[in-house]
Design a protein around this nucleic acid. Sequence first.
RNA 1: GGAGAUGUGGCUGAGUGGCUGAAAGCGGCAGUUUGCUAAAUUGUUGAGGAUCAAAAGUCCUCCACAGGUUCGAAUCCUGUCAUCUCCGCCA
Length: 428
Amino acid sequence: MLDLNFVRENLETVRKALENRNFPTGLLNKFAELDTERRRIIGEADKINQLRNSSSKEIGALMQSGKRAEAEAKKAEVAGLKDNQTELETKRDEAENAMRELLSQLPNIPAEGVPIGADEAANVEVRRWSEPKEFDFEPKDHVDLGETLGILDLERATKIAGSRFAILNGAGARLSRALVNFMLDVHTSEHGYTETLPPFMVNRKALFGTNQLPKFEEDLFHIKDTDYALIPTAEVPVTNYHSEEILEAKDLPKYFTAYTPCFRSEAGSYGRDTRGLIRQHQFEKVELVKLAMPETSDAEHEKLTANAERILQLLGLPYRTVVLSTGDMGFGARKTYDIEVWLPSQKTYREISSCSNCGDFQARRMNLRFRRAGGGKPEFVHTLNGSGLAVGRTWIAILENYQQADGSILIPEILQRYMNGLEKIEAP
RNA sequence: GGAGAUGUGGCUGAGUGGCUGAAAGCGGCAGUUUGCUAAAUUGUUGAGGAUCAAAAGUCCUCCACAGGUUCGAAUCCUGUCAUCUCCGCCA
């Protein structure tokens, strides 16, 4: 959420930012009117409250000095304020809510230097690591490979759940578990993150804090008759961990990593990525979350992205990193790097991680602040998050990049100890 | 799921209708004192909002949350949520 005063004083900057995001600017037209109306009503309501408070005090004084009749007269007078007061308070609530609703629907302002463009075509590659391997045979995709090896069963997943679900078996399930453990180990012991295992369901307040609500309701799986939804990413429970708290500057930055399943309805993506594990209703992810001071958040963002890239490097998977254009960025981000892994079957790079600096945008929504050493007013923390990495897509990348002509899969050496020493997945 | 208890500021903890945004202590910050460390001592110390160019000042709101009673609520009433204890159930 943007700061009310910032929007008031920088209306044109905000308008420009929305345009660059391909975001409708209509909401802004109501801003000025809503803002003055809100302030006018607050002023009026305050005045009435003041009158009531001072009169009540006078009544108290009259009562104590025994002037009963005068007190009664005053009482009648103040009682007459009641209707007016109730009405103004209702209007005040309405005005505050309307403003909050407007602000909560505005996306974050992109950081300086983010490429301006309409969509992913305007994304800019910032680096590339390793070269795609040349195969002397036609590489298969992970569905062919996995099903032939008996480690991936999509048909039966459809039977017991539906489309966009999968079942991993044997070495396939083991590989997924190995990846999770490997990623968590690297992030905790080499990158300084604290492992956390959060709830997989969260309430609406948490979802508001990390911008899934109110705009992206239909992307979530809601639990009927409850306030809960299944988490679409661990970003939600982990970033909200310190919500409504005031942290001390000396405790920042804080690094968290969490393995969780993620649940997404994928409403509106019906024709896309229908084959295999790429886009599922349920997938697994190791998430990275940071809480940082404003002046270090850009540097922390670079480090977080490098931490995610490190996993691909250790696994020997070729990738490239792109900075998303204004038109392709998520709602709450000031700047986002996507890390894309090479998939031989598609002969292209596909997103495997998305690392964002949200600035104070989420912190304001969840009222997450910190206080500098020596006191002073609390300030909003900067929040950052990124996948480190999406486990399903890493699983795909390993199958496809490490496939052999006979359909077997070599296990990257660093993973072998997580696979009970297994060096190769072969057909039974 | 049943029975009961509790919910006050960074923490501990007073406060049962007006003078309490809230005693006291601890902690924090600033000063004084002191070879050093430590201690002592004085002052200060919640958040959000309106007004204002800004600051100061003034005012409003906030004692889990939402309602209600009252001229007036941290204090009385109702509901919700959370925590704790006992019982039941369960991984």
